[in-house]
Nucleic acid binder design. Structure first.
Length: 630
DNA sequence: ATCGCTTAG
DNA sequence: GTCCACTAAGCGATT
């Protein structure tokens, strides 16, 4: 099935990859696209982040083997680079003949916006954004990367080069081959037009050919509903969200950086005194040698891989609890070093000079469970758990006249477990709206609710989390700091109280072993690598198999809510903008006067995004910053 | 490039 | 007997 010579779309008999550099030729391609009803589109730019990149050229494919490249902003390769020094006028040959960008977009717009012509891209979110920046709203769309993702999420990658090889047996021209690598790399606008045409037209051609194959494969794999109701409609929603960006207050970050720098200097000096000599506190290797070779502390563990002393937080915490002062200092140092290097020093540099806001990129096909991920910068792991870290959220602010609103699902993964595993006791608890951790604690440890202690509740909460992670006595014992035997007894008690859960877990593992994948409630496939193996690898795969349907169903549900929200807000005449998604939370910027109406509507849409049986609950918080809203 | 560690849900 | 209780991304040190 994988590397078959494809039965549905033969290899093109002729390959025409042509350069388009006149308006007449471009108009003819547009006519051809309108006639075809399906075109593949690809944009070439001078950068990877759409909010900073400039459009350099566009390629179109109208049938397999027939594609063109329309250069728009190419310059002569000998033109001196910006900022390279020297006089920047008069050097280099004049630019090659090209259709003026505005003219080209005007000619292409009727095709790209035509409701009867499907525009296919590979990761079309990027291209959609490039066109949106120039006033073109591409629709309807299709995406070969996302088609591959719904079929093979967790089993293989979804890059175009990889898919071309696997599905078409074609080795594509690599980007590196065209632009060079390292410090010799040139931006695409300097690539000579013959090379640029060969590369860019091929990309559109391959995308169209992949579309023919993957359209069939998604259908044959019965993944059409997931693709058409979740992945595809999410593209313009996430595209707009990224372009909106979030307002970040540089001054707040600057002050925090200064504060953290001061603390780091102090802590470093104290650590060196306690160590008896100077060393690089940021080097785990040197720290391990100080603690376990020189200070001869006990309780050291060597990592299996490199044989180096482990100095992670669990090790340091144990030693700190024994009253070893250097360990607490190192933990504090690490916290500030992390906050400064990853957040306060870096986020300010990510503010886009054009918009004054920070635009993350959400990857739509990066995880094995259906979750999004966030990069450049990652805005899904902004600190919240410690007081110092949480201060960073003060820098994420609303524009004047607006508020930040955070709306998150309450206990969504446990609700999903209760539903998928069919656990009546848990389902009833959620219907009654009672404290779920206290309730499970009461059931598992035989403690009446009115005699519940925070310690017992804490243990039950840890077990509830453990269930979601594909519980093991080893993992739970580490989490709770108890023996594996005790942890095993807790798990046994839990299964006795909720026997449906154990049955569900066994069934899920068996399915994964039989099929190689598991499914979410909405039908998404999550492939599980290593489930056919033995021992620890199999156990690991089994825990993934337990977790994936739970995490993946939550991902499906919030995606459905995101898809519904723009229309629901518009229909209600509300002007809130969705800014971020953090797995079970959506962040909005809301006009002051619309806070109440928006809060009610967003909660309603999120709670009604999917009917999983038991009710979903969403809770909203509002403030001038993300810190206040949460 | 990879490791070790830390941040989030 | 097991690097791993699940999913991610990024930084500095090290190779």
């Amino acid at each position: 099935m994988e590397a078959r010579a494809d039965a549905h779309i033969p290899r093109p008999e002729t390959v025409e990859h042509v350069l388009v550099d006149t308006e007449e030729a471009l108009a003819a391609w547009v006519a051809e696209g309108l006639e075809a009803g399906v075109v593949a589109v690809d944009t070439e730019t001078d950068g990877l982040t759409p909010m900073r990149a400039n459009l350099v050229g566009i390629s179109l494919a109208t049938r397999p083997g027939r594609a063109c490249y329309i250069p728009l902003a190419h310059i002569d390769p000998s033109t001196p680079k910006e900022g390279a020094g020297g006089l920047d006028f008069g050097d280099g040959a004049p630019p090659p003949r090209q259709v003026p960008l505005a003219r080209a977009l005007a000619i292409l717009k009727p095709l790209l916006e035509h409701p009867g012509v499907l525009k296919v891209g590979h990761n079309i979110k990027f291209d959609w954004q490039m066109f949106a920046k120039h006033g073109v709203t591409v629709a309807p769309i299709d995406d070969t990367m996302l088609r591959s993702y719904v079929i093979g999420g967790g089993r293989h990658g979804h890059g175009m080069d990889e898919l071309a090889q696997r599905h078409l047996g074609v080795t594509t021209i690599s980007f590196d081959e065209v632009t060079g690598t390292g410090k010799n790399r040139i931006t695409f606008d300097r690539v000579p037009l013959d090379k640029a045409t060969a590369y860019a037209a091929e990309d559109a051609d391959i995308t169209l050919r992949l579309w023919h194959v993957l359209r069939h494969d998604v259908l044959a794999d019965r993944m059409v509903t997931v693709y058409e109701t979740i992945e595809r409609p999410l593209v313009p929603v996430v595209a707009r969200m990224e372009m909106e960006g979030v307002l970040v207050d540089r001054q707040v970050l600057k002050e925090l950086s200064n504060d953290f720098a001061k603390r780091l200097v102090e802590l470093e000096a104290e650590i060196h005194v306690l160590a008896g000599r100077t060393f690089n506190v940021g080097s785990p290797k040197q720290l391990g040698e100080i603690l376990f070779d020189e200070m001869k502390l006990s309780g050291g563990k060597k990592s299996a891989k490199t044989g180096a002393w482990s100095t992670d937080s669990s090790v340091l915490e144990e030693l700190a609890d024994l009253g070893i002062p250097i360990c607490q200092k190192v933990m504090d140092w690490r916290q500030f070093a992390k906050l400064k290097s990853t957040y306060t020093d870096t986020l300010g540099e990510q503010i886009n000079p054009g918009t004054g806001r920070v635009h993350t990129s959400f990857a739509l096909a990066a995880t094995s469970t259906g979750r999004l991920s966030s990069t450049d910068p990652n805005l899904q792991n902004i600190p919240i758990r410690t007081e110092e870290g949480r201060k960073i959220r003060r820098a994420f602010v609303a524009a004047p006249g607006n508020r930040i609103m955070s709306v998150d699902y309450s206990q969504i993964e446990l609700r999903i477990v209760a539903e998928m595993a069919g656990i009546p006791a848990l389902q009833q608890a959620f219907r009654d709206g009672i404290d779920i951790h206290a309730m499970t604690a009461s059931q598992v440890f035989n403690v009446p609710l009115d005699q519940m202690t925070s310690e017992i509740r804490r243990r039950a909460k840890a077990i509830n989390f453990g269930i979601i992670y594909g519980i093991s006595s080893f993992g739970l014992s580490r989490q709770l700091g108890i023996s594996a035997g005790e942890a095993g007894a807790f798990i046994k008690a839990y299964f006795e109280r909720f026997p449906e859960l154990q049955a569900y877990m066994e069934k899920t593992k068996a399915e994964a072993a039989r099929d190689g994948y598991v499914r979410t409630l909405l039908g998404r496939k999550c492939w599980i690598q290593g489930i056919q193996e033995k021992g620890a690898r199999k156990a690991y795969a089994e825990r993934q198999a337990i977790n994936a349907p739970i995490q993946g169903t939550a991902a499906d549900i919030i995606k459905l809510a995101m898809i519904k929200l723009p229309g629901a807000l518009a229909e209600a005449g509300l002007n809130a903008r969705m800014l971020l998604q953090v797995h079970d939370e959506l962040l909005f910027e809301v006009p002051d006067a619309e806070v109440e109406a928006t809060s009610a509507l967003v909660r309603q849409v999120m709670e009604g995004a999917a009917d999983i049986g038991i009710p979903l609950v969403a809770e909203a918080g509002v403030g001038l910053s993300w810190a206040e809203a949460h």
